[in-house]
């Protein structure tokens, strides 16, 4: 098989790679905020339970979580495995990344001086106004570098979908590598991820720059 054919075949899976990537961000970024707020809840039980789930999600391999979400329902309840693997894959990725984002958000929120809350309170901002207008914008600026790190990692982690045979770019590459006994598809995959991340870096850099108007 020629290099060109490999590239064409593998790029057919790029749409699915992108689907995992964008859908995961779409769900995990807001979900992470909810998890962070639960984690910081003053109700001890809520924060303890949330903390427990975060340790599970961060303390076990994403690969296992993918297998658990995809095949777990079958082994537990005899449910049929989803035909479209995108759904379990995105669920597993979103939950896993939400746990990481939650901890980033929490760090960011806790780094805002308490005086900012007090100033807003004295000026009569409601709690929601204080969070949305005063705290969150400052948190977003502070956590951008950490979020960029996670997003870059996510690009590469999409390859993990091969464990449940979801036909994204890396899975196709791996199949070609097996059938052709060639290492070339992995080099192609590496190039694809690298280009993807150059774009991610550029976009995140632009966002950080837009937040640069204050210190």
């Amino acid at each position: 098989m020629s290099l060109m054919t490999m590239i064409v075949k593998m790029s057919e899976g790029l749409g699915k790679t992108c689907a995992i990537f964008f859908l995961t961000l779409l769900f995990s970024l807001p979900l992470g905020m909810i998890v962070a707020l639960l984690r910081m809840s003053k109700v001890k039980l809520v924060s303890a339970v949330t903390r427990f789930f975060i340790t599970i999600l961060r303390g076990t391999p994403l690969m296992l979580q993918l297998l658990a979400v995809t095949y777990g329902p079958y082994y537990l309840f005899g449910a049929t495995v989803a035909r479209n693997k995108l759904i379990p894959v995105v669920i597993a990725f979103s939950i896993n990344y939400a746990a990481y984002f939650a901890e980033i958000y929490r760090g960011g929120i806790e780094s805002i001086p308490v005086g900012q809350y007090e100033a807003a309170e004295v000026l009569g901002y409601t709690r929601i106004q204080t969070f949305m207008r005063i705290i969150l914008p400052q948190v977003i600026k502070r956590i951008m570098p950490s979020v960029t790190n996670e997003v870059v990692t996510l690009v590469k982690d999409t390859s993990m979908a091969f464990t449940v045979s979801y036909q994204e770019m890396f899975t196709i590459g791996k199949q070609i590598a097996n059938s052709q006994t060639s290492f070339t598809p992995f080099v192609v995959a590496g190039a694809f991820y690298y280009i993807f991340n150059v774009i991610v870096d550029y976009v995140m850099g632009r966002i950080e720059k837009r937040l640069d108007y204050y210190r």
Binding site: G115, Q116, E118, K141
Partner: peptide
């Protein structure tokens, strides 16, 4: 209330 550390909103 005026605070010791101003507590202006930096953004």
């Amino acid at each position: 209330l005026v605070f010791q550390n101003f507590q202006l909103f930096p953004h």
